[in-house]
Amino acid sequence: MRHIISVLLENESGALARLVGLFAQRGYNIDSLTVAPTEDATLSRLTLVTHGNDQVIEQITKQLHKLIEVVKLTDLNESAHLERELMLIKVKASGAARDEVKRCADIFRGQIIDVTATTYTVQLVGTSDKLDAFIQALAGTTILEVVRSGVSGIARGEKTLAL
């Protein structure tokens, strides 16, 4: 099963390498990973999408906890949560495809943020599923480049992952 794990990490050199190394050493999967500093400059917030059975996910969270630089973590799947991913997608937009891509982007509430005579670059924000669906919807056009940010997640309601 797919899990989104949110981690507060000491913003120190080597901390990220240690965390990523753990996944490599123990053969866990990373489907996506996003990391950036928080409002507190000493902390990074990291969102990691992984998958595995319950036993594997339990080991992942326990092993992450053991890393000295991991301050706190939560498995967002344990409660209601929001997830968003950003995608920038460059497609061929000439002839009939030019209108089709525009229409499709509108339907998905994407924005065309760069235009040339033959291409569009569309920005789209949503769940990973929505981004997948948009790529599917563009099946008839030529996709030149896809850039995805990986998932960021946060719990719904008053629940927070903070110090």
Binding site: S13, G14, A17, R18, G21, Q25, I68
Partner: peptide, 14 residues
């Protein structure tokens, strides 16, 4: 050495 020792120690620092 930080990279080499990372998976075989409890912690490392420079």
């Amino acid at each position: 050495m930080l990279g080499i020792s990372r998976p075989i120690c409890k912690h490392n620092m420079s």
